[in-house]
Design a protein around this nucleic acid. Structure first.
Lengths: 155, 155
DNA sequence: GGTGAAAGGTCATTAAG
DNA sequence: CTTAATGACCTTTCACC
């Protein structure tokens, strides 16, 4: 899949995203062209989706994160519900899932009271029958992929 | 919080991450120094966490995503469990939560069978009493923050 | 490896809150 | 009066051929 050099390159870019290709080649001890080729290949293959800015909702004032499980009325299906959910900015992501629920969404709010407003928006979506929300109190393991990259490189 | 120019800047960087400060200033119709100052301020305030490479676990071979809810033995608390979870590469993120469960984690696996291996790793963590897993079948709303940025700018 | 271009810093001036 | 934006200049560094 990917080798050790790829993993080290991704790790380096993760630690210091603003450094260029030349600087990477110096730190990794390989030729400039090699780094460029690796980067191109990683992006072509979709391993690296992009270098978009990581926005922290909390810094924007949305300090509460929650996960809400939706039960959907079977007629109509998920798609129209998903479209309505996508129209709500506070819906950070939405998945269809196995198990008792039908969808799982990550949502944010400016506080617990504001979260209620967001939940109400979701409850009002046509096709949503029932919801169940859990609030994230802390995030001991923040979103990460680096350990996974290293694990993938080891194989 | 943030104004319209900030939102447009983030939107621009999101759409085309590889463009530089100068190009941004051209597209936004403002001076280069302004873009630079805005970017610095956004990063200082933590609104933009960084520009790290976005890695797609699926492209690395981890094609199954799941959410696992953990019940933790109360003695000992969450912290030692979180530390053990952090040692598992397939644990993408972990939150402590309200409600029936104690923690919610996003995990990935190379397939359903491999996911079972990951779940077993988690079940074996000292202090974990019970787990409940739902698999993400599809992701109609992939992780995003742009709509939230625009919403924050409007206030 | 050389070259044109961009990043990043500083400055004085100007505008706006 | 404070804060921000602007255009100008400069040096270092990088990306592309």
């Amino acid at each position: 899949m990917i080798d050790d050099l790829d993993a080290r390159l991704i790790g380096l870019l993760n630690a210091e995203p603003r450094i260029g290709v030349l600087e990477c080649s110096r730190r990794l001890g390989v030729a400039r062209g090699t780094v460029q080729a690796r980067l191109d290949r990683l992006q072509e293959r979709g391993v690296i989706r992009g270098f978009g800015p990581e926005v922290d909702p909390a810094a924007l004032g949305y300090q509460v994160t929650a996960f809400i499980t939706l039960e959907i009325r079977q007629v109509g299906g998920h798609d129209p519900v998903a479209a309505r959910l996508a129209a709500i900015p506070e819906v950070i992501e939405a998945h269809t899932i196995t198990g008792g629920g039908d969808m799982l969404c990550r949502i944010v709010g400016r506080g617990n009271q504001d979260l209620q407003r967001v939940i109400d928006l979701i409850v009002d979506v046509e096709g949503v029958q029932r919801t169940s929300t859990v609030i994230a109190l802390a995030t001991p393991v923040p979103q990460r992929t680096l350990p996974l990259v290293r694990a993938a490189a080891r194989q």
